[in-house]
């Protein structure tokens, strides 16, 4: 893999991750990404037999779902106590098109 990570790439990845990076932060991120990716690239040298499936979860048991019963959940007021801003009923956020 190519590890040519520049400021532009870092800013793009930052945008995908909803991080608002300054140019200095983007440069630092680019440097780190390039360094870790050049280490991680050793994965390319591993020969994986055709029949090996990726292992995405540390358990292979089937996910357990409980019965779909209606139960009381936490009340709105308790949940909204951690909100940075709310109108008492909903979360309040700045305009989408500001």
């Amino acid at each position: 893999m190519s590890n040519a990570i520049d400021r532009k790439t870092a800013l793009h990845v930052g945008k995908l991750a909803r991080l608002e990076l300054t140019d200095a932060q983007a440069d630092a991120s680019a440097k780190h990404l390039a360094s870790i990716l050049s280490y991680v690239d050793q994965l390319a040298e591993v020969e994986v037999p055709e029949d090996i499936e990726p292992f995405f979860g540390a358990t292979e048991s089937v996910n357990a779902v409980r019965d779909d019963e209606v139960r009381p959940s936490m009340d709105r007021e308790t949940i909204l106590r951690n909100a940075p801003d709310s109108d008492g009923e909903f979360y309040r956020v700045p305009p989408v098109f500001g």
């Binding site: 991750a17 909803r18 991080l19 608002e20 990076l21 932060q25 951690n82 909100a83 940075p84 801003d85 979360y91 956020v93 700045p94 305009p95 989408v96 098109f97 500001g98």
Partner: peptide, 26 residues
Amino acid sequence: ARYDGVRYTMRFEADNLNKMYGLTRT
């Protein structure tokens, strides 16, 4: 991704939603 300035106490104020997300997370 859930730490976006909406639900978990911290928010960096901005004049639009995307900017608020980005600044809060940074």
